[in-house]
């Protein structure tokens, strides 16, 4: 079942077409990789899917709500984590969790029990009273993710969640993503690390506002006769560049 349905999404800024006739579905519980070169139009599309910006035209449904007049419902059903982890540096670990839970309207009792569970699971009980600015990057990243899914949304959007972290932390983070997807949450993720594209169930590659390719990593590799997703990406993006 599709939890994100996009039909002919167009977004224009003046005479510039940032998103040009995007059409795709994302299935429930799927890990969907949304790739593209800088300036290909990924962020523009994500903002629309998150209910932060209106499309110029097209039919778009996220978690069963349309992006024109049900945006508040969309926001309740999604989580979002950006590369600049959206945590408050001068609040403690525990304060950040409570702040986000409160914003999403969770009850006080529920917040306390879920917070305990989360801190236990992340092994962060001992540092719950430490400020975010004092904890290592890898922990911040896991916490930022956990906070983004704390209200149990149906979809979580991850915008370059692994930029600049060490290779072990990066892989631990992907294990967290896999676990989350196995529990039925849909994961919509962007990345510049092409090996991470292999971890997705399906991948789309955007070039100049259009979706140039969309398939499973295995089928994409064989279609482009490439050894890995990095080669696929280079072939698609280079072709577009030379074609101009």
């Amino acid at each position: 079942m599709a939890i994100i349905k996009v039909r002919n999404l167009v977004k224009k800024f003046g005479s510039f077409t940032a998103n040009d006739q995007l059409t795709f579905d994302v299935g429930e519980g799927e890990i969907f990789g949304f790739l593209g070169a800088n300036g290909a139009g990924k962020t523009t599309a994500i903002k629309i899917l998150c209910g932060l910006s209106y499309p110029s035209s097209g039919e778009i449904e996220v978690a069963g709500y349309n992006v024109y007049n049900e945006r508040e419902n969309i926001k309740k059903n999604i989580g979002y984590m950006s590369q600049k982890f959206s945590l408050y540096e001068d609040l403690t670990v525990s304060e950040n969790i409570r702040l986000y839970a409160g914003i999403y309207g969770m009850g006080k009792k529920k917040i306390i029990t879920r917070e305990e569970e989360l801190l236990e699971r992340l092994g962060m009980m001992a540092i719950r009273k430490r400020r975010i600015s004092e904890i290592p990057l890898g922990w911040k990243q896991k916490l930022a993710f956990s906070v983004a899914v704390f209200h149990n949304p149906r979809i979580v959007f991850l915008d370059e969640p692994t930029g600049g972290v060490d290779p072990i932390t990066r892989r631990q983070f992907w294990e967290l993503i896999h676990e989350t997807a196995e529990q039925g949450m849909t994961v919509f993720v962007t990345t510049h690390y092409m090996d991470e594209a292999e971890y997705c169930d399906r991948v789309s590659i955007m070039v100049d506002g259009r979706i140039e390719a969309l398939d499973t990593p295995v089928r994409m590799r064989s279609a482009y006769q490439a050894a890995n997703m990095n080669e696929v990406f280079l072939k698609i993006a280079m072709k577009a560049k030379n074609g101009k």
Binding site: G36, A37, N38, G163, G164, H192, N230, L234, A237, K241
Partner: peptide
């Protein structure tokens, strides 16, 4: 090359 896509990095 931080935050730069694979093509520009190459």
């Amino acid at each position: 090359t931080t935050g730069v896509d694979a093509v520009s990095r190459k």
